[in-house]
Design a protein around this nucleic acid. Structure first.
Length: 163
DNA sequence: GCCAACGTTGGC
DNA sequence: GCCAACGTTGGC
């Protein structure tokens, strides 16, 4: 794994019915482990690429309105997702061996909740975000890389007053 | 190793 | 609620 010093950016999807940004705000230390990811591509990001200090866009999926609702920072890098070992957990995976875990997670701490959710409609109407993975048809990946320019464009949108 | 069938995701 | 896109599974 190549070492890097540059901060990288990510988008984490969550269905607010199961875990919303307000739930994160209520969590002690405004910090949570991001468990339950059961997709290999997302797992690889969590295990191998995401570093402490990286920025996270918090996205609400399968809801109305669909929106980026705030930001968080990575405070702990990839470590085994223990929910895979718990038969009572809905994300239990008997194939994941604690001695050689299949699934990983990171910890994130809430940075800020946007004063107004940045809706998907608005993202789609923004030229600078044309190529964003989130906006591609059939983009199901729940942990997505975000480019530095997309990150900057989104922050600009989040503070610009809506007309 | 191919690929049809199936289950899930998630926008619409 | 619908269904396209995608990932996984399993028969061959």
């Amino acid at each position: 794994m190549a070492k890097r010093s540059e901060r990288q950016f990510w988008l984490f999807k969550s269905e607010p019915d199961s875990f919303s940004i307000d739930d994160l705000a209520r969590t002690p230390g405004r910090t949570t482990f991001w468990s339950g990811v059961r997709n290999y591509q997302a797992r690889n990001f969590l295990r191998d690429t995401i570093q402490v200090g990286d920025g996270v866009l918090f996205y609400h999926s399968s809801t109305d309105p669909l929106a980026i609702v705030g930001t968080a920072n990575v405070v702990k890098k990839g470590y085994p997702d223990h929910t895979a070992f718990d038969p009572k957990d809905s994300h239990y995976d008997p194939a994941s061996d604690p001695a050689e875990p299949t699934w990983y997670m990171v910890d994130i701490r809430l940075e800020k909740i946007f004063p107004k959710p940045l809706t998907r409609d608005r993202l789609q109407a923004t030229a600078a975000l044309k190529g964003m993975m989130l906006l591609k048809r059939g983009s199901r990946l729940s942990i997505q890389p975000v480019t530095a320019s997309e990150w900057a464009a989104i922050h600009k949108l989040a503070v610009v007053k809506e007309s």
